[in-house]
Measured scan of single mutants.
Amino acid sequence: TFELKGKVGKVVKIAEDHYLVEVEGDKWIAYSDEKLSLGDRVMVVDVDGLKLKAKRIP
């Protein structure tokens, strides 16, 4: 999973306390310091076990 750092994905679902992000065809649980919206493009900035930390990108 460490190779996911720096990869770009898309928010495909918003849950109460996390997001579901699709990166290279796989879906991952993600969290972010900022509020994300459905369809936002994100970059993986860190990997915490099986969770990704994501940041919105333009």
Rank of each mutant, 00 (worst) to 15 (best):
T1E: 15
F2D: 15
F2A: 15
F2P: 15
F2Y: 05
F2I: 15
E3F: 04
E3R: 01
E3T: 01
E3I: 02
E3A: 02
L4T: 14
L4G: 15
L4Y: 03
K5N: 15
K5T: 15
K5V: 15
G6T: 01
G6D: 13
G6C: 10
G6L: 01
K7C: 12
V8W: 05
V8E: 14
V8Y: 07
V8A: 06
G9D: 00
G9P: 00
G9N: 00
G9F: 06
G9S: 02
G9C: 08
K10P: 06
K10N: 10
K10M: 10
K10S: 12
K10G: 09
V11Y: 00
V11L: 05
V11M: 03
V11A: 03
V11P: 00
V11E: 00
V11I: 05
V11R: 00
V11W: 01
V12P: 00
V12N: 04
V12Q: 05
V12F: 08
V12A: 06
K13H: 10
K13F: 11
K13E: 10
I14V: 12
I14A: 13
I14H: 07
I14D: 10
I14G: 04
I14W: 10
I14S: 09
A15R: 13
A15Q: 12
A15D: 13
A15H: 12
A15P: 04
E16A: 09
E16P: 10
E16G: 13
E16N: 13
E16W: 11
E16Q: 10
E16S: 09
E16Y: 12
D17Q: 12
D17N: 08
D17C: 09
D17T: 10
H18C: 11
H18A: 08
H18M: 13
Y19I: 04
Y19T: 06
Y19A: 10
Y19H: 03
L20D: 07
L20P: 00
L20W: 13
V21Q: 00
V21F: 03
V21D: 00
E22I: 14
E22R: 06
E22D: 09
V23N: 02
V23Y: 01
V23K: 01
V23E: 02
V23M: 05
V23G: 02
V23R: 01
V23L: 13
V23Q: 01
E24W: 03
E24D: 07
E24V: 06
E24H: 05
E24C: 15
E24Y: 04
G25H: 06
G25I: 04
G25E: 06
G25N: 07
G25F: 06
G25S: 06
D26V: 11
D26C: 13
D26L: 14
D26T: 14
K27M: 08
K27Q: 11
K27G: 09
K27A: 09
K27H: 07
K27Y: 08
W28I: 02
W28T: 01
I29G: 11
I29R: 07
I29C: 11
I29H: 14
I29W: 13
I29Q: 13
A30K: 00
A30I: 04
A30N: 01
A30Q: 02
A30E: 01
A30S: 13
A30T: 09
Y31Q: 11
Y31S: 13
S32D: 04
S32F: 03
S32N: 05
D33G: 07
D33A: 07
D33N: 07
D33S: 07
D33E: 10
D33F: 06
D33W: 07
E34P: 03
E34I: 04
E34N: 06
E34M: 05
E34Y: 04
K35L: 12
K35S: 09
K35T: 11
K35G: 08
K35F: 09
L36I: 05
L36H: 02
L36Q: 01
L36D: 00
L36R: 00
L36W: 13
L36V: 07
S37Q: 11
S37R: 12
S37Y: 13
S37A: 11
S37V: 11
L38N: 07
L38P: 08
L38E: 12
L38C: 12
L38F: 13
L38W: 10
G39Y: 11
G39P: 01
D40R: 02
D40K: 02
D40V: 05
D40A: 06
D40I: 05
R41V: 10
V42E: 00
V42C: 07
V42P: 00
V42G: 00
V42N: 00
V42H: 00
V42I: 15
M43A: 05
M43S: 05
M43Q: 10
M43C: 15
M43W: 02
M43V: 14
M43H: 03
V44S: 01
V44M: 05
V44C: 03
V44K: 00
V44F: 15
V44E: 00
V44L: 03
V44A: 03
V44W: 03
V45C: 09
V45K: 02
V45P: 01
V45F: 02
V45R: 01
D46M: 03
D46W: 02
D46I: 02
D46K: 03
D46E: 08
D46F: 02
V47Q: 14
V47A: 09
V47K: 05
V47C: 08
V47P: 02
V47I: 06
V47E: 04
V47D: 04
V47G: 05
D48E: 12
D48Y: 08
D48A: 04
D48R: 03
G49V: 07
G49Y: 06
G49L: 07
G49S: 05
G49A: 07
G49E: 13
G49R: 05
L50S: 13
L50I: 09
L50D: 14
L50C: 14
L50Y: 13
K51S: 08
K51I: 13
K51Q: 05
L52E: 01
L52T: 02
L52N: 01
L52F: 02
K53A: 03
K53G: 03
K53W: 05
A54C: 15
K55F: 02
K55A: 14
K55C: 10
K55L: 04
R56W: 12
R56D: 02
R56Y: 11
R56C: 05
R56Q: 09
R56A: 08
I57K: 04
I57T: 06
P58V: 08
P58F: 07
P58S: 09
P58L: 07
P58A: 09
